[in-house]
Write a protein that binds this DNA or RNA. Structure first.
Lengths: 202, 202
DNA sequence: ACCATATTATGGTGATTGCCATAGTGTACC
DNA sequence: GGTACACTATGGCAATCACCATAATATGGT
């Protein structure tokens, strides 16, 4: 194993950025290589699987970065502090959208929307990324639930809301709703294991 | 106003179908016209604005159809029956995904993901469609809230979760989580105006 | 110096992209 | 029968698409 050249990594990073803002099909290899500075001539040396392989790797990079960020916040969550954890997830997404002028989409969401109907490989990778986020969220709220399954269900609700909100906020160019929606979801967080607040009245 | 030819409508309907399953950029005009049976020669007669105009109209058709469906369910919701309304929304989405073998995406979500960064016109149309759905949902749960704003916030949470769940379920090829997630969201529905269940404990 | 391998340049493949100009056909109204 | 208009066929535009074959270069170890 020898070394050198960040062309490969540059290409993957550019793919993450472009797939987030404009999706898969709208991103041409030419634009991708131009923006990354990576040489065009070596693309199929680094990615013999072509554009699909690049998408898989971009998905994996984006997936594990986001998972780490969630895990970091989950680990920093003290017992009883779970509402702050949930609110922080929404807050972070809102901030990212604002900082990017509402261009920061989600690689998984975009690839899924364009490809998961016809490409099982991509669909599986999208699913794997999303599930890793759900599990990371579940870790952060597990103390509030009696069973892991219940925590995972709640985490999936958070994940779905975050994803949907990102889409809505991009179109709206506003993050005004994020805090209020975090509150709604916090309100369905059980206050203590086995005592699911709110659910008793319905 | 004279007459004839369903070519225009056929094209819009095909656009809805294809933009749902594979998004905007991956859908070529050729494929679109082939599948719709609409003649190629008359495309720019019917849509002088080109592909973007077609997207706008597809979005509008998809938007108002979905809005009607939500409104129908909202109107059929008796006071006190709001949890059933929420559950029905998730149930309907799950059924649609199953029936389509998980190809049934959302036009707004796909167009938004690919275009809302660079095309303000499309972004506005996406936002308008989504807001119309949020308002329709808010109508169905308004009785549970003291203010319209609170109902809208809750409705936006439902909308975001539905959107995110659709994306997740397509990749996962499973609707297993829908019912449980509906339950989580029902649990944050106030039991009576002004008494927001669950929120008092956090 | 030599070789093996890693990386890139060059140039092009055929196919497809969205778009459009021109001409022609169909039907309806007078 | 003639005019007006709705609609479609044809053919081709330049540009881009993903992809690849071949050859050149760079860089490491020996």
């Amino acid at each position: 194993m020898v070394r050198t050249s960040n062309a490969r990594q540059d290409a993957v990073e550019a793919a993450v950025r472009l797939f987030r803002t404009q999706g898969y099909s709208a991103t041409g290899l030419t634009q991708l290589l131009e923006e990354s500075g990576a040489p065009k001539g070596s693309f199929y040396f680094h990615f013999p699987g072509g554009k699909e392989q690049l998408a898989l790797e971009a998905l994996q990079v984006f997936g594990s970065e986001l998972r780490s960020r969630i895990q970091r916040r989950a680990a920093a969550t003290a017992t009883g502090d779970e509402p702050a954890f949930i609110r922080a997830l929404f807050e972070a997404t809102a901030r990212e959208l604002e900082a990017s002028d509402y261009t920061a989409g989600c690689v998984a969401s975009n690839l899924g929307g364009e490809l998961s109907s016809g490409n099982r490989t991509i669909a599986d990778a999208v699913n794997a990324a999303v599930q890793s986020w759900v599990e990371a969220i579940a870790d952060g709220v597990a103390n509030r639930f009696e069973t892991r399954a219940a925590a995972t269900t709640y985490a999936a609700t958070i994940m779905a809301s975050l994803s949907g909100m990102r889409t809505m906020a991009r179109a709206q160019r506003s993050t005004a709703m994020f805090a209020a929606i975090a509150d709604v979801l916090v309100s369905s967080l059980p206050s203590t294991p086995g005592n699911k607040s709110g659910s008793d009245t319905n």
